[in-house]
Design a protein around this nucleic acid. Sequence first.
DNA 1: AATGTCGTAAACAAGT
DNA 2: TACTTGTTTACGACAT
Length: 945
Amino acid sequence: MDGEMAIMESSNHVGTSSPTTETQFTIDSSALKDQETKESITNSPTSEVPIETKLPKSSDIVTEEKHPQNTTTDIENEVENPVTDDNGNLKLELPDNLDNADFSKLLEFDAKNDEALFNSNELLSHTMDPVNNINLTHDHSREVSSKEDINIEPVNPDEDEREKTQDNTAAVKTEGIKNSEDTSIQKDEQTADAIYTDVHKLSVNKDTETLPTLVDEKNNMLHMRNNSITPIMFQQHELVGQPPQKTVTENNSTDAETTQRKLSEPIDASLPLPNEQPTIFAYARLDFQSFTFYVQTLHAIIGRRSENDFSHKVDVNLGPSKSISRRHAQIFYNFGTGRFELSIIGKKFELSIIGKNGAFVDDIFVEKGNTVPLRNKTKIQIGQIPFQFILPEQERNDDSKSPENADIAESEINTRNLKKNEPKSKKKITTGAKPKKAQTKPAVKKEKKPPKIPKKVYTLEEIPVEYRTKPTVSYSAMLTTCIRKYSTAKGMSLSEIYAGIRELFPYYKYCPDGWQSSVRHNLSLNKSFRKVSKEGKGWLWGLDEEYIAERERQKKKQSEIAVAKAQAAQLKLEQQQHKLQQVPQRGKKDIVSQRSNVNARKQNISQTLAANRAASNRKNTASDNQRTMKYLQEQLVILTRDRKGLSKQVIAAILTQALAMTINQVTQAAKNKGITGNPLTALMDKNPQHLNLILAAAVNAATAKVTKGEVKQLVNPETTAAGALAAKAQHSKPIRQPIVQTPHVPDRPPSQLSASASSHPNNYLHDKQPGSFDPSSLSRFFQPRQNARATSSVAATSVPAAASQNVDAQPKPKPAQDNDLESESGTSSSSSSSSESGSESDSGSDDGSASGSGDNSSTSSESESESDSGSEVDEKNNKNEKIDSESIKNNESKDDIPSKDENSSNDNREISKTDEEGHDSKRRKVSEDINEGITEVNVSLEEKL
DNA sequence: AATGTCGTAAACAAGT
DNA sequence: TACTTGTTTACGACAT
């Protein structure tokens, strides 16, 4: 034997040098360690059999030398490095970028792998000399570099075909192999240095069924390997998925070389990077004691090849041992059965000597001419050379089974899919079954989370109509009611209170969470509630009746005062209204006096309106009146922009009179029709054009009066109409807005003044007789009340869309009329329909503070806007609510500002206060009437138009 | 304009 | 760790 052989021997020896191995190795060791075996094995990697080991030459098969040597301490026994052999037989091509560190790693890696690899290792071990790690390392790296990218059809790893040939003679050897296997396993455990478990080792340990611990270990190794530069042979297997289109049966070294080069190029390129995992693509792998053979073709011949024997081609050279035929066996993929098979070459009936011409497959002797299926980890022994057939898929499965691998896979997925957040991604992917706590737990939690779905988000359709609106009850009132109704002497727990509120006000069943916070806040802050007793973690809440009673008293007092005030204010208003009506009848008046009366008249007007308001809902009417007043004033200013030489004073007088005339006439007309609502506002909203015409007529009438006929017409109704039309065209969206847009009115956003896009046909404008003021024309707007009920629904349906549109378009200065109408009716209806919560009204009165705030907060019910929103979700409804109420509030508050007559606003407040102060029922009725009236007006208008 | 009320939200702590 | 419960603070809107 040449030096190389010696090397091999030594390597083998080293590989089996572990004590455990030897101890385990009792039975067959002696039998197996015959010289021939040694020779054959050692020869295989030598120069004599260059093809297999020489990567560049073997395209189909890549052999990887294994290093049985287990520890670095054996390095001292270095022998010649086959890699550097001049013959090039064993010289492996190393990746250029592999540095020393990499080598050393590989060294370690290989050493450990080898230990685990083959049972037979031990058998052969004692006769062998320690192997030079370095050499092996070289081989290893070279092998890696020679990876070939081949798409292979996955071999069915599960194929468990035990077509063992019945041969008694195999018994002994089988036992021996088994023993050796055990030995190797133990060895693994001993020498397993976490990090460097080689693929080979893994392959051996793949027997997850029998070696769970090792599997884990393997997985660990695999995991670590991902971070190492060590070539991962299994990766290649992983990639073996489909049978290659090209059947590489040719093992011709030359052809193979070319092919290999080509195929391996990309892989080699990747090798340089230390952290990159080299991948070798192969159908299967033959794990020998000291090297690994990658089956990269669908057909590989196993045989003997002597130094000078180039007469035949051998893919796997098992050495010169005579016990091995030149063409001893072949491994091929049987497409028929869909598996790899091992066929013993030779005539079937040729006499085969056990251990010589046949082969042991899974410890069962296979005679010549026989073919046996190869499944993953099938043990094969030809001559004295054992090896194992490894399928990639199996490894993969094993890998996947292992938690670590799962991690890896996960991490891979993560990096692939979610490169941004590694920690996050990890968590996310934890769905996979992972034994590891850290990762499993989060995963479980994540999965457990779903069960705790935040809360069902109801669509509007899912919510009963009556529960779509937030109750106009303050939290304190709700709580009071709830506790009164459901609480025991011990009190109510928070969750019970929640439930109670949901029961009392189903709105809170459907609305998004958040109100609970308010509930808690109220309980904590409001002195009406007190902790009664403790139960578990929380308290049981009760009422502080004393405090509540005291508070009620105060409220009552206040309300009484307010009522008194309101009554006084009403009286005053009526008186002033009476005066106002006399204004137009006055003849000439001193300009100065007229001027001095402007405020008073304005007050009167406001008070008149306020008087009307007094009979209606405080908020809406207040808002309406102010809005109407403002509108009228603005329109008057606009109409009289052309003063025709008249002095300011005269104009002021004219305006005053015109305003009074308009208000009185409209009011009177409505009154005559039995309408108690706010006709002026209704008219303004429903038909501002007409109101403008009325105003224009009034202005002209007043002008004639004031100027004693000098000026008969200050306003041209035609212009008014034209202006209205123009404005209409300009602002098609806003609805029910004043006709004329005036940029000089800063108090209101333009939208407020934008022309209405209502359905009022223009021809209506021409119905009017321009120039003359015909108050009687107003009557046409006011129909008897009889139709109210029937028609109100029409109005209700026709209005909302527009109203919501307004809200959406101009939430702030929103002309809340329609909204108010709707909401008002909604309120009234809800207040009546909400009898379901009779306690609610109780609470309202009980909890004085509540009723006020409740009205304020939710004011007009938003049923309209909600119903408008249609498919809007509950959450959004809430927001709509907010917007609605807010806009309404804004309206109220901001309308106060522009009103120059403080009295009126004061009056409004008085009234409102009065209302607020406890005349809920009265207010409701009044507002109902108003609504009806207004609705009537609207309907009649719409009908007419 | 200052103050109070109410609703809402958030931060935080403590308990489960 | 997540959730519940309770407290506190802050803010905005509104009313007084």
